[in-house]
């Protein structure tokens, strides 16, 4: 059975139909790219999956359970993490705190234990910190050492993107949704990030869904590509397959491809 199933998903804002019946599946341990022209509904899809938007119709099933009607925090707890298109960190918290806070739903100490500083609470705190450091080390030397205690807003753009991924990883997800992870990065960093996406799956066993405009990255990372346009799925398959589909070319170029 697929890890994530999207069934006939509809979402509209006033008169604007953002998603008009999207269907697709993501299997365990797969890397799926969602592509499509601007306004195709890719980010709306992410927001619907993570509970920020309430779909009008359809169903989202994750690991056999429907996510409909769950709060965003419950969906995260169920095992879906995400990054945001326009990098949304907690800018005045430190790098380490950003990652520590993301373990919220995997830890338990409430106010009572915090005030009493019980041994279990202290153990948990130590554990949270150790896990956070370990996750940050996944990105090499960029986010470790003195950077632990720096406020997130002081990081470079690329590091902020990395930190956002680290934060998503800290929620201990089974599925991670990356919204344009390489936007605004230089070719070097882009290549590194593509390798990182592979490592997410190969080393951590995560399932990954990527929304991306950079076709180089899409080609490199995807097992499968889903193409959206005007809120519906117009093609699905390997990168080469979808790239050859007429509808896809039409969606991107805006005119029917003339057969030669």
């Amino acid at each position: 059975m697929a890890l994530l199933e999207i069934r006939d998903l509809h979402l509209s804002f006033g008169g604007l139909q953002a998603l008009a019946g999207v269907d697709f599946e993501v299997n365990e341990n797969e890397i799926v790219s969602v592509i499509g022209p601007n306004g195709a509904g890719k980010t709306s899809l992410f927001n619907a999956i993570t509970g920020l938007y309430r779909p009008d119709q359809g169903d989202i099933v994750f690991g056999g359970h429907s996510l409909m009607g769950l709060e965003p925090s419950e969906i995260t707890r169920a095992g879906i993490a995400r990054t945001f298109q326009n990098v949304r960190l907690f800018p005045n918290m430190t790098v380490l705190e950003n990652v520590m806070v993301a373990q919220h739903c995997r830890t338990h100490s409430g106010p009572f234990r915090a005030v009493l500083r019980t041994p279990s609470m202290r153990r948990e705190e130590a554990h949270i910190e150790a896990v956070a450091k370990e996750i940050l080390a996944f990105f090499g030397s960029r986010l470790v050492g003195y950077r632990f205690d720096q406020p997130a807003h002081s990081l470079s753009y690329a590091n902020r993107r990395r930190l956002e991924m680290a934060r998503a990883m800290a929620t201990q997800p089974r599925l991670i949704l990356l919204d344009e992870p390489v936007a605004g990065m230089n070719p070097n960093e882009t290549g590194e990030l593509a390798r990182l996406i592979h490592r997410l799956r190969d080393h951590l066993g995560l399932t990954v869904v990527v929304v991306e405009h950079d076709m180089g990255v899409v080609r490199e990372v995807s097992d499968r590509v889903v193409v959206l346009d005007h809120g519906i799925r117009i093609a699905e398959g390997t990168f080469e397959e979808v790239a050859a589909t007429d509808e896809v070319i039409e969606a991107y170029l805006g005119q029917p491809a003339t057969p030669t």
């Binding site: 993570t50 509970g51 920020l52 709060e71 965003p72 925090s73 995260t76 707890r77 993490a81 995400r82 945001f84 949304r88 960190l89 907690f90 800018p91 005045n92 918290m93 705190e97 520590m100 806070v101 993301a102 373990q103 919220h104 739903c105 995997r106 830890t107 100490s109 409430g110 106010p111 915090a114 609470m121 948990e124 705190e125 949270i128 934060r167 998503a168 929620t171």
Partner: peptide
Amino acid sequence: SRIGRAWNALREDETVAAAMGV
């Protein structure tokens, strides 16, 4: 503590805090 970090996070960006499991 854990709850203090959560407060911090939701004060800075409530939507993201929710999406990060708070």
